[in-house]
Design a protein around this nucleic acid. Structure first.
Length: 202
DNA sequence: CACCAGGTTGACC
DNA sequence: GGTCAACATGGT
């Protein structure tokens, strides 16, 4: 019985309040954060972003040309720092060559395909960039969302779950942003790998 | 000390 | 098409 997602959204909003997710001064900062946040705590990403800012490396041009050791030092705290450094600089080159807003303004389908062709950018990272930097309504499916979908009896791969959310909700950017953040807030507390308590969603 | 975190890739079936 | 180790640090 689909159609319960909007109800779930309001339940979570009542319980946790607005999350105002992905605070960032620029779109490029969102892009960098999206890459760095892979398989790490957000607090580590904030630290890394701060480090990059202190070195004035938070622009595509600066980051693309920056010294490798310097970049690795800045992002070490996010883990996988060698491959993330490589991928971050390749991504910076790409945005530097074509222009951040020029790229983000492209039609969603085209944009998604382009992002996915970049090394280190998979579906979740691409969709995070589209939703939080390009401000277009694609629903981000992360590990927490997958976990909650299991509770809801929704099975399938990334695209399947994404279609389910997008088909069940109005295509609204703010709604997608908040809902995604609320799912994470909820799952972190009540639907961890070890336990699934007080499940308000079933 | 073991396990986990806002994933992606390339190898292998 | 799906599964899986590798990638690396820091927190609980």
């Amino acid at each position: 019985m689909p159609g319960h997602l909007l109800e779930l959204y309001h339940q979570l909003l009542d319980k946790f309040g607005p999350q105002h997710w992905w605070p960032a001064e620029t779109e490029f900062e969102v892009i960098v954060g999206a890459l760095l946040t892979q398989q790490t705590r957000w607090e580590s990403v904030e630290q890394a972003i701060e480090n990059l800012k202190a070195q004035s490396l938070l622009t595509p041009d600066a980051l693309a040309d920056a010294d490798k050791g310097t970049v690795e030092e800045c992002i070490r705290c996010t883990g996988f720092y060698r491959q993330k450094r490589e991928r971050l600089q390749l991504l910076s080159q790409y945005f530097s060559r074509n222009g951040v807003s020029k790229i983000l303004e492209r039609p969603v389908d085209e944009l998604r395909k382009e992002l996915l062709s970049q090394k280190g950018v998979g579906p979740e990272t691409a969709d995070s960039i589209i939703l939080y930097a390009a401000h277009k309504p694609v629903f981000v499916i992360d590990a927490y969302t997958k976990r909650i979908c299991e509770c809801l009896g929704i099975t399938g791969g990334y695209e399947t779950l994404q279609r389910y959310f997008e088909d069940s909700l109005p295509g609204d950017v703010s709604l997608y942003q908040e809902f995604h953040a609320l799912i994470v807030a909820y799952a972190k507390q009540y639907c961890t790998k070890k336990r699934c308590d007080e499940c308000i969603i079933v």
